[in-house]
């Protein structure tokens, strides 16, 4: 008990100390985390349909309400064209909101034996050479420099000025 109580004490103290001492380091560390997140978010954004709407991210009531109205409209249309809505139809509607990634997780493909070809095993996997080429975020040339704050690439002094003035820390446009 004693040991357990004592252990978190000094741990807490040291952690608060390092936070105060190396604030710049800490911010750099957290920003590297942000960078990884930003990179993932960016890849995700590449698969989205309405980038604008999703960046606004549902705090815009307009989109939500149109969706609902749209469902109402669809139902009206269907009732005109087709017979009544079945229970399955309604269930389908609810399920329809899921993204493919949700379905994939539900399918639990990892549980299958390794010889069964699945969606996950069909992925091509990492490249044999990991040499990544970087392009300047401002002009598109091959970029040799990295912004120390946000990790975005640029190629020249001129582009750095533009980057710092307008784009720094704006990850996904």
């Amino acid at each position: 008990m004693d040991g357990e109580e004592e252990n978190p004490g000094p741990f807490r103290r040291t952690s608060s100390r390092t936070r105060r001492m190396a604030s710049r380091m800490a911010s750099a560390l957290s920003s590297s985390d942000n960078r990884a997140q930003a990179a993932l978010a960016r890849l995700d954004a590449l698969e989205s349909d309405n980038a604008g709407a999703e960046v606004v991210d549902l705090n815009d009531d307009e989109y939500g309400s149109t969706d609902e109205e749209d469902h109402v409209l669809m139902q009206k249309k269907q009732s005109k064209n087709m017979k009544r809505k079945t229970r399955q139809g309604k269930a389908l509607e609810k399920r329809a909101v899921r993204s493919f990634m949700d379905v994939l997780q539900e399918a639990n493909l990892e549980a299958l034996p390794p010889h069964v070809p699945t969606y996950l095993r069909a992925a091509v996997g990492p490249p044999s050479t990991s040499s990544r080429r970087h392009y300047c975020s401002v002009c598109g040339n091959s970029a040799n420099y990295t912004c120390p704050r946000c990790g975005t690439r640029f190629c020249s002094c001129r582009c750095q000025v533009i980057h710092n003035d307008t784009r720094c820390l704006k990850f996904v446009a």
Binding site: R42, A51, H115, Y119, A122, S137
Partner: peptide
Amino acid sequence: YAVRRMDLGGKALTNYLKELVSYR
């Protein structure tokens, strides 16, 4: 069992171009 997939197609390319143009 031999099919290999790359998660990149026309949609991602369009969105990438969109991003570049919007950024630049």
